[in-house]
Design a protein around this nucleic acid. Sequence first.
DNA 1: TCAAAAGTGTTCCGAATACACCCATGA
DNA 2: TCATGGGTGTATTCGGAACACTTTTGA
Lengths: 230, 230
Amino acid sequence: MYTYEYPRPALSVDCVIFGLDENELKVLLIERGHDPYAGCWAFPGGFVDMDETTEAAAKRELWEETGLQNMFMEQLYTFSDVHRDPRGRVVSVAYYALVKLSDVKDQVSASSDAQKAEWFPVNSLPALAFDHAKIFDTAFTRLKGKVRYQPLGFELLPEKFTLSQLQKLYELILNKELDKRNFRKKILSMALLIELPERQKGVSHRAAKLYQFDKVKYKELEAKGFSFEL
Amino acid sequence: MYTYEYPRPALSVDCVIFGLDENELKVLLIERGHDPYAGCWAFPGGFVDMDETTEAAAKRELWEETGLQNMFMEQLYTFSDVHRDPRGRVVSVAYYALVKLSDVKDQVSASSDAQKAEWFPVNSLPALAFDHAKIFDTAFTRLKGKVRYQPLGFELLPEKFTLSQLQKLYELILNKELDKRNFRKKILSMALLIELPERQKGVSHRAAKLYQFDKVKYKELEAKGFSFEL
DNA sequence: TCAAAAGTGTTCCGAATACACCCATGA
DNA sequence: TCATGGGTGTATTCGGAACACTTTTGA
């Protein structure tokens, strides 16, 4: 057996979780109960066990701290500044995740009894612990970049959504207005949306058709070289 | 002072270094001198010291093992499979780098006395140690994806190059033929190439004009929202 | 004079953009 | 009946794709 006898940095994970709340993009933060940075807000995270991958650790921590699971999650970047944690050398592998906030909004506050968890609009975050402001910037930049050529948007919407909801989502993330007719033409021309035999309910105006993203078809097309692009 | 008293995975870095050799894209491999995987080829890499970032570690290892420095380098992905290293738990932060192979070809073999370093065409790699085949796939996929919307190609060419060299490079990486006139039109229309008052020498056909990439101008345009795209 | 690569414009087609009005619904 | 958002088509413009011949050079 071979072993390494050098001192090792500690290894942690952190998760930036995005959720769409009505007309605002939000992220989930945890209020730290003790030092360092007691009272500060931080992304959920923790240390990696010896028998789990970093991705498994990220999912476990998320489950433990927020009760969330089964969302879209992807590795973001590994942060290794020597002094990023005052307690000593900690290298952190960051992930970002997208959740259908409409489905889980109550769930989060209910299950995070020990710690205070809260959704904050991406444009008005409180002071963040460690280098989490940097992690957030990296995550948000990645999301903005990737949403244009990968169908990430659907991970943030409910299963059934209207075209206006979809458009608003893109306008929020890309931070620019889109033409309604052109947007619809383009998104429908990809033939990746299933039109449901249902409509919106309880709105005081004409009810919009509901659509669903056809994940199966997307996977097929993707394998054939098709690339989603907005 | 706070400390963590849990067992920690070891933390290493690995570098996939791409170089363009005539009409082939190659990567640099090191032959392993001892177990595990003695005699196998692997990407240069090593363990992260307590007082350096992973990026610094990657650059240091590269310098120690190959004598290379000052090349373009970017974090690729962090690999954390529990059994990726038979010696125990090792998490590795992988980087990829691009070098102007024409400038450094001899340098590498000269400085890597202790270990055998060799450039292999990306399409005929030997068996690789650990999960390095997976790391390579990730790196090559990233390169192919990123070269289209970031001016990475120039990192692989000599300072002064011809448009044909540039085109061949893109054809190699994207693995498809490009139309000469359209390619030139497009690349010149970006106005990011400086036409030098020089030409190719020693060729038995009409000598091509030499160009240089205008990095300064690119940075300016990029800051204004311009995006390179081939 | 031959071989080999450099260099150069135009036409065509499809996609992106810009743009304005009627429809359905609940209050 | 009014306010609110849902839903639809066309004309124009711009960029991408296809395509072939002349020029220069050294061997």
